[in-house]
Simulated scan of single mutants.
Amino acid sequence: MQVKESTFLITGAASGLGAATAERLVAAGARVVLCDLNDSVNAHAQQLGASARAILADITSGEQMQQAVDAAVALGGEHGLSGVVHCAGVVSVAKLVDREGNPADLESYMKTININLVGTFNVMRLAAAAMAKNAPNESGERGVIINTASIAAFDGQVGQCAYSASKAGVVGMSLPAARELSRHAIRVMAIAPGVFETPMMSEIPDEAAQALAAAVPFPKRLGKPDEFAQLAEQIITNPMLNGELIRLDGGIRMQ
């Protein structure tokens, strides 16, 4: 699939991995719809120029995400929606039993699962239904879906039961979704980032962030959002990448 003149929907596009992906794809000649709950996504879309549109939508809402998909299909014109890079999600930390002996909050756990896992399924199902209507391109493809998992799916740390479970679910959906959507010529991939320079990372103390960076074998630093975007672009353009998860982590293994 060619990036140039194709149209992509990017969730979580107001900042971090999603924003960097939007910037890279627009620079490569794509049209993009930037989707986020944060209204700063509007300013980011304006900065990217005429090839970008912004829409405020909750990934857990069927109605709102359908509007986002419809906006991307309209922007694509006769070629419709070519791909989705789904970056929206939340990080949560809570021990099963806290220092006072209290059990973890069930509502908080369910919220994390709902956003990170159910939200991913919601985006996939709506985008796939739209892309299945596309005419195949010159290589026979109709679309591509790239989901964002996390190395926490495999190396979850203390307090990450909800987050790790939600991201492990994203990993688990990749292969069955790819198998199912193969009849529509739609590929499904997932990226599992390690520790990256994103707004989520800014929420932890500097000392902890430095310790995480030092734990990366090489390069010994936090990942840059554009490095995620670069991999997303490579997945889009390589038709043999399908049904798989790629760790993007500099070799780190969390403990």
Results as ranks from 00 to 15, higher is better:
Met1Gly: 06
Met1Ala: 09
Gln2Met: 06
Val3Glu: 01
Val3Ala: 03
Glu5Cys: 01
Ser6Ala: 10
Phe8Asn: 06
Phe8Arg: 08
Leu9Val: 04
Ile10His: 00
Ser15Pro: 02
Gly16Phe: 01
Ala19Trp: 06
Ala19Leu: 14
Arg24Pro: 00
Leu25Met: 14
Val26Gln: 01
Ala28Arg: 11
Ala30Lys: 10
Ala30Ile: 08
Arg31Asn: 11
Val33Ile: 04
Val33Leu: 04
Val33Asn: 01
Cys35Tyr: 00
Leu37Met: 09
Leu37Asn: 05
Asn38Met: 05
Val41Tyr: 04
Asn42Val: 11
Ala45Arg: 04
Gly49Arg: 07
Ala50Asp: 09
Ile55Asn: 02
Leu56Gln: 07
Ala57Val: 09
Asp58His: 04
Ile59Gln: 10
Gly62Met: 08
Gly62Glu: 15
Val69Met: 14
Ala74Val: 03
Gly77Val: 01
Gly77His: 13
Glu78Lys: 10
His79Ile: 00
Gly80His: 09
Ser82His: 12
Gly83Ala: 09
Val84Pro: 00
His86Trp: 10
Cys87Arg: 05
Cys87Val: 10
Gly89Val: 15
Val90Lys: 09
Val90Gln: 13
Val91Pro: 04
Val93Met: 14
Val93Gln: 14
Val97Lys: 02
Asn102Thr: 14
Pro103His: 12
Asp105Val: 00
Tyr109Val: 08
Tyr109Ala: 00
Met110Arg: 12
Asn114Gln: 13
Asn116Ser: 08
Leu117Gly: 04
Leu117Phe: 15
Gly119Ile: 11
Phe121Arg: 01
Asn122His: 12
Val123Cys: 11
Met124Tyr: 14
Leu126Arg: 13
Ala129Met: 05
Asn134Val: 12
Asn134Ala: 12
Ala135Lys: 15
Pro136Gln: 12
Asn137Asp: 15
Glu138His: 10
Gly140Leu: 09
Glu141Val: 02
Ile151Val: 15
Ala153Asp: 04
Val158Leu: 14
Gln160Val: 00
Ala162Tyr: 14
Ala162Met: 06
Val171Gly: 01
Gly172Ser: 13
Gly172Tyr: 12
Gly172Val: 10
Met173Asp: 03
Ser174Ala: 13
Ser174Glu: 08
Leu175Met: 12
Pro176Phe: 13
Ala177Cys: 06
Ala177Ile: 00
Arg179Gln: 14
Glu180Leu: 09
Arg183Trp: 03
Arg187Glu: 13
Arg187Lys: 11
Ile191Arg: 03
Ala192Ser: 13
Gly194Pro: 08
Thr198Trp: 00
Thr198Pro: 02
Pro199Leu: 07
Met201Ile: 13
Glu203Leu: 15
Glu203Trp: 03
Ala208Pro: 05
Ala209Glu: 13
Ala211Met: 09
Ala213Met: 10
Ala215Thr: 05
Ala215Glu: 07
Val216Asp: 08
Pro219Phe: 01
Lys220Arg: 15
Arg221Asn: 06
Arg221Trp: 01
Leu222Gln: 07
Gly223Asp: 01
Pro225Gln: 07
Pro225Phe: 01
Gln230Pro: 00
Leu231Thr: 03
Thr237Pro: 00
Asn238Tyr: 08
Met240Leu: 12
Leu241Thr: 12
Asn242Ile: 11
Gly243Tyr: 11
Glu244His: 02
Glu244Met: 11
Leu245Asn: 06
Leu248Gly: 05
Leu248Trp: 04
Arg253Gly: 03
Met254Cys: 03
Met254Arg: 15
